[in-house]
């Protein structure tokens, strides 16, 4: 078995399994902690608040964004860009189709893929350089934040390096980093990609039952 076959075969299956089970375990673990039932008479629906809180926090309130507008634009660029790269990049669709899903969907054209990559890279770099140059973020950040940013960056960079598709080893390095990223994800802050809906929903529900129109 070649290195490439190993990293996109057995190792990928292992990493993906750890990713799925680990993330599920952690989500269930958080929910299982449970909370006391709120018995104060509600004014409006908590469930509606859960959904509303989730939707409302997708979009920032302009009044807080003045000093950090660049950060917010970067955040959007990175997250939307990464999402598009993962799910609408031709190579990724092919990989998912062949290895896991068995079905495919239309991909972005190559020029769009490259453009989106640029945006995603720019966004990620902006997010990280603010982390090192803003006293607030310097104070509150920990190792996990930096490792998460760097690992994601390296995954993306190795993918970009493999774009010519001329060398198996470059593809293998990309896959290896993807696997490491998948293994790291459920144990780290990268989990925010899944926990955000719990957090937004919890406060949304609290606000909702008080009848607060967020």
């Amino acid at each position: 078995m070649s290195f490439l076959e190993f990293v996109q075969g057995p190792m990928f299956i292992f990493a993906a399994t750890v990713f799925v089970l680990g993330a599920l375990w952690r989500l269930v673990g958080i929910i299982k902690i449970g909370r006391k039932k709120d018995i104060s008479p509600p004014k409006a629906s908590a469930a509606a608040g859960f959904i509303k809180g989730n939707l409302r926090h997708f979009w920032p309130r302009g009044i807080f964004a003045k000093r950090t507008m660049v950060h917010i634009v970067g955040g959007y660029g990175f997250h939307l860009g990464l999402f598009a790269l993962i799910f609408f990049g031709a190579y990724h669709i092919d990989f998912l189709n062949e290895r896991i899903l068995g079905f495919s969907w239309p991909a972005m054209p190559r020029w769009a893929f490259l453009m989106v990559s640029g945006i995603a890279f720019a966004g990620l770099i902006i997010l990280w350089v603010r982390r090192i140059s803003d006293p607030v973020m310097r104070l509150i950040s920990d190792k996990d934040d930096h490792i998460g940013s760097w690992l994601t960056f390296l995954v993306m960079l190795s993918g970009c390096f493999a774009l010519e598709q001329a060398h198996d080893i470059l593809r293998a390095i990309h896959m290896l980093l993807v696997n490491i990223w998948l293994l790291y994800f459920p144990f780290s802050r990268l989990m925010h990609g899944f926990t955000f809906f719990l957090s937004r929903g919890s406060s949304g529900a609290t606000y909702g039952r008080k009848g607060i129109d967020l």
């Binding site: 000093r67 660049v70 950060h71 350089v129 603010r130 090192i132 140059s133 803003d134």
Partner: peptide
């Protein structure tokens, strides 16, 4: 901050 981010 925005100047620092631009620099980095």
């Amino acid at each position: 901050l925005s100047a620092r981010v631009a620099h980095w």
